[in-house]
Simulated assay, not measured.
Amino acid sequence: MPQPFDATANRQAERLALTFLDRVWQPPHDLDAIDELMTEDYVITSGGQTIRGRDAFKAWVKAFQELLLDARTDNLEVFANPAGDRVVSRWRCSGRNNGMLGTPADGRPIAFSGVAIWTVRDGRLAECWVERSAWELYQQLTTLP
């Protein structure tokens, strides 16, 4: 049976995802925003790894941003399901290589795309599945500049 359309929840879910991308993945990288935007038991699955809990997620984001200097993630498209309890973003992440995927930290500009699918619970992001173009990124990193 189709879900009823809830325009308010739909817009709130989209706004929540955009706020997360803007505050956490754009300079100056406000990691404390994670406390506001994610549930305490937040779970993310990315690159074959599952990170559980807000504090573990903060540490994961910090470590990622240390590997990708000047990291920024720009939303290309966002949409939520009719009930507003799922939201998807297609995005592009860019920065300077500081050892991504175990490669030498050469400072060269890199970029890759990805998709994030979140579950929204009680007005916060509760769970996420991320797929990113890791193969294309690896090719960039292992090709001589």
Rank of each mutant, 00 (worst) to 15 (best):
L18T: 02
L18M: 08
L21P: 00
D22E: 15
D22I: 00
R23T: 02
V24S: 08
W25D: 04
P27C: 06
P27E: 11
P28M: 10
P28F: 07
P28E: 01
H29L: 09
L31C: 10
A33H: 05
A33C: 07
A33W: 04
I34V: 15
D35W: 11
M38D: 04
T39R: 12
E40W: 03
E40T: 03
D41W: 11
D41F: 04
Y42M: 07
V43W: 00
I44E: 07
T45I: 10
S46C: 07
S46P: 00
G47D: 11
T50G: 02
T50L: 07
G53Q: 12
R54I: 03
D55K: 10
D55I: 05
D55C: 00
D55A: 15
F57L: 04
F57V: 03
A59W: 00
W60N: 08
A63Q: 09
A63I: 03
A63Y: 04
F64L: 12
Q65D: 13
E66H: 12
L68I: 11
L68Y: 08
L69H: 12
D70Y: 11
A71S: 12
A71Y: 04
R72G: 09
D74H: 04
D74T: 13
V78S: 05
V78D: 12
F79P: 01
N81G: 14
P82S: 12
A83E: 13
A83W: 00
G84E: 12
D85V: 01
D85R: 05
V88G: 02
V88M: 15
S89H: 07
S89L: 14
R90F: 13
W91A: 01
